[in-house]
Amino acid sequence: MNGIVQYFTDIFKAVRSLWKGMRVTGSYFVRPGEIVTQQYPENRKELQMFDRFKGEVIMIHDEENFHRCNACGICQMNCPNGSIEIISEMVPNEEGKPERTIDKHIYHLSMCTFCGLCVKSCPSNALAFGQGFEHAVFDRHKLTKVLNQPGSRIKKKPKAPKPAAGTEKPNSANS
C-alpha cells in the first residue's frame, strides 16, 4: 500500500516540479519587456562601446596631423606576437642632425591579441586603443595597417623628464 501511495506522490511531485519550470519560461513569454537582444546593424548609430574598449591599436593624431611616435621600437619589442613592425628612417631635423623618424608603423591586426602591452609600454603615449570593432574584410592583407597617417609629423614637445618605468602613467586609452 505504501508503495502505491509513494507512486502517486511521486507523480504529484513530478508534475509540480515541471510546473515550476514552465512558470519561469511562461512568465518570460508574457513579459517581452525583458528581451535583451540588440538589433545590431540598425543600432549602429546609438551603439556606444565602452571608453576602454580594445578594438584595435591606433596612433593618436591631433587635428593638425601630429603624432607622438618617435620610432623608439619599444612597442615592437614588447609585442608578443610580432604584430607591430616599425620602419624608421633618419631625417635631419631643424638643427641638421639626423634624427630617427617613423616612416611606417605597421600593425598586423590579424595577429594582434589585444594584450595591451604596446600601449602600456609606449614611453611617449603615442599609441592607444581605438573603438572600431567592425574588422571583417574580404582580403586578409587589408588587416595589415599603417598606423601613422600619411603626411603626419611628430609633435615636438618641450623636454620633459622621462617617466620612470613602472610608475603610474595616464593611459591614453581612457584619457
Binding site: 565602452f50 576602454r52 574598449f53 580594445k54 591579441t113 589585444f114 594584450c115 595591451g116 586603443f129 586609452a173
Partner: peptide, 11 residues
C-alpha cells in the same frame, strides 16, 4: 569590458 576593454581574454 568597461574596466579592461575586453570581454573574454582580458590580459
Amino acid at each position: 569590458e568597461e574596466s579592461f576593454g575586453s570581454r573574454l581574454l582580458h590580459s
